[in-house]
Design a protein around this nucleic acid. Sequence first.
DNA 1: ATATTAAATGTGCGCGCACACAAATTATAA
DNA 2: TTATAATTTGTGTGCGCGCACATTTAATAT
Lengths: 356, 356
Amino acid sequence: MNVKNIRIKDIAQLAGVSVGTVDRVLHNRGRVSEDALKKVLAVLDQIDYKPNLIARTLGANKTYRIAALMPNPDQDPYWASSKSGISQAEAEWLRYGVTVQSYFFNLYEKDSFKEVAEAVTKDRPDGILVAPIFYHETLPFFEQFKQEGIPYVLFNTNIPEVDPLSFIGQNLFQSGKLGAELMHLAQNGESGMLAVLHINEDLGNSVHLAEKEKGFREYFLEKNHSGYNITTHNLYNPNEPTFEKELSALLDQPALKGIFVSTSKATYIVASYLEKLQRNNIKLIGYDMLQENIRYMKKGVINFLINQNPKRQAFLGINHLVGYLILRKEAPANELLPLEIISKENLDSYLSSGIH
Amino acid sequence: MNVKNIRIKDIAQLAGVSVGTVDRVLHNRGRVSEDALKKVLAVLDQIDYKPNLIARTLGANKTYRIAALMPNPDQDPYWASSKSGISQAEAEWLRYGVTVQSYFFNLYEKDSFKEVAEAVTKDRPDGILVAPIFYHETLPFFEQFKQEGIPYVLFNTNIPEVDPLSFIGQNLFQSGKLGAELMHLAQNGESGMLAVLHINEDLGNSVHLAEKEKGFREYFLEKNHSGYNITTHNLYNPNEPTFEKELSALLDQPALKGIFVSTSKATYIVASYLEKLQRNNIKLIGYDMLQENIRYMKKGVINFLINQNPKRQAFLGINHLVGYLILRKEAPANELLPLEIISKENLDSYLSSGIH
DNA sequence: ATATTAAATGTGCGCGCACACAAATTATAA
DNA sequence: TTATAATTTGTGTGCGCGCACATTTAATAT
C-alpha cells in the first residue's frame, strides 16, 4: 500500500493547503498567494508527482477529432497498408472518444493535396497525421496548423523544418545501403551490372528515392567494388506503352545481375516482368510486404524485401497524437523504425506476428 | 457525443433494470431472477458492450504483485536483456499499483530452480512470468499455480502442455532455417564444411538448441546442397581447459567455411576465437544484439545475427500479465516474435529504435 | 466603524466501473 | 394471517483528477 503513488490530496496535506490550491499551482492558473505557492512548490520539489493519467482521462470525458491526411489508398497498396494502421489505431481509441477522419489526396496531383489540406484546415481537428509527400505544397499549411496550435505528426516523409510533434519513418540513406548489402550478398561474389530502378509515378517522391539510391551507391563505394557497374533508371507511368519497352530493354541486357527497386509498388511490377521474361538469374531487392510482393518472394522472384512498415508507421502516428492529446505524453521527435530484412525464411514469422 | 460508448447505465435503462443487476449479469455473480437475466441478455445481444477499461482500472485501485522467474542475469548477458525488459515494463505500470518481484535461479542448476520456484509459490503472487528452461522440474509447479488460479505466462521456452495464459518466443525450427539461408548467402556460392556449434552450458536447453539445428539442416536438405558438409559440435563449459582445445581444433580445419552458433553467448565466445586465430574467412552466424555481439559485428567478425529480442519477450510477458489482471484483456496464446535479421547495415537502425 | 469589492482558498461534483450494503420483493414457516 | 427467512433488486460510495462554484479572508472604499 505504501508503494502507491502520491495523489494531489497527499500534496495538499503535506503543504497544508487544499487540493484546489495544489491544482491551481500544478496548472499554474494563478489565484494563489505567494505564501501558498511557496509551500506547494516546496513539496513538489521534494516529491516526484506523477498524475494518474487514468483518472485524468476518465474525468476529461472529451472527444477528440484527428485528421489523417494521406494519399488515396486505392492508388497504391502501400498506402492501403498505412490506412489499415490508422484504422487499427482508431478502433483501439474509439471508446475513449477519439475519432479519426481520413482525407485522401491524389498521389499524382499536387493540387489535389492543396484542396484536401484546405478541407482539413476548415474542419479544425484536434490533431493531424500527415504523409507530406509533396514538399513545397505542404509548407504553408503547417504554418497555419502551428498558428492555430493544432499538433501534427508526420509519417513516411520527413520535413524537419516544419517542426512536427513527431516524425515516424526510416533512415532512407541507410535503407539504400542495406539494400546494397543484401544485393551484394545475393550476388554470390560474381560481379556484373546492377540497376537502381525508380518508378516515380508521384513526382513528389523523387528526393525520397534519391536518398535511397545515394545509400545504395555509397555501400559499393565504401567497399571499393569496381567490379559492379551500377546504372540508374527512371521510369514513370506503368500504363504508358513506353514503360514496357524501356523496362524490357533493361531486362534484356545479359550482363544485368541485379535490380534494386526503390518503392514497394515498383517491386512487384518489376517482379512480374522478371517472371514473364524468365529472367530468374536477376536478383531483385525491393520494399515492403505487400500481398503481391509476398507472392513473388515465395516464388523466389524477389530475393529480399526491406520492410518500411507502413502500417506500423501510421499506427504509431495516431497513437502518438492520442497520447499527446489525452495523456499529455510527449511523443518522440523522431521515431526511426528499424530496417527490417525480409527473406523467404523469415517471411512467415513476420506475417504471423500482428502489427509489429 | 452520440459516438460515445455505451455504458452500464445505458444498458440498465434499455433493459428496464438497475445498474446493479446489469453488473451482476456481466460478471455472472448470480442473484438475478430469470426474468431480469433474460431482459439484460437481450440488450447485450443487440449491442456490443465494451467496458471502459480506464474507469475499471481507476475504480479497482488494487495492487498486483507479479513474480518473474528467470535465470540469473549475471550469468549470461542474454538474460540481462530479459531482465531489462521486465524492468521497463515494471516502470510503466508502477503507478498503477503493479510491482514485479524477480526471482533468479542458477542457469546451471536444476535444484536452484526448484528452490526459487518454491519461494514463488509461497509468496502467492497475482501473476507469474517464467522462463521454464528446465522441463521436468517445472511441471509440478505449474500444476500448483493452476490449482491456485494464478495466471502464468511463459517466455523464451515453450511448454505447451502446461497450458499457459500466453507464450512469447520464436519458432526455433524456422529460426534455424533462417540461419541456414543466411549462411548459404554468406558463402558466396562456394561450398565446403559448415559447423553447427552448441555451447550447452545449461543442460536444460538442449531440446531448444536441437530444434534450431534441425531447421538449419532442413534448409540444406530442401535445397539438395550436397556440396556442404555439415557437422555438429557440442561444447560445454568455456572455462574448462578442454573447451579451448576442442574449439581450436575445429577452427583449425582449413575446409571450414562457416559456423552457425545456437545461442547468443556462444556467438561472441566463438567470435573472440575467430578474431584471435585470424580466421576471417569463416562466416559466423549467431544470435542477439548483445553488447559483445554488436562489437564483433561492427568489426566484421559476425556476419549475421538473428534477433531473439529477449528484452521485448520479457517486456511483452509482463504486459500481457498486467493486461490480463487489470484490464481483463485476453493475451494471445502464442506470440511468436518475428525472426529479425541483423546485419552490419541495419544494426544501427535497430539500436536506435528503443524496445521496438 | 461598516459596507463593498477583490483576492485567495476550499468544497462539491461527475467521469464509468465495481463492489458493499440497504431496500424491496417473494417464498416459507409458524 | 402474521412473522421470518431467502431471494432479488436498487442505491451509494470511492477511485484521482479537473473544473465550476461556494466560502472565507484580506484589501479598499465609504
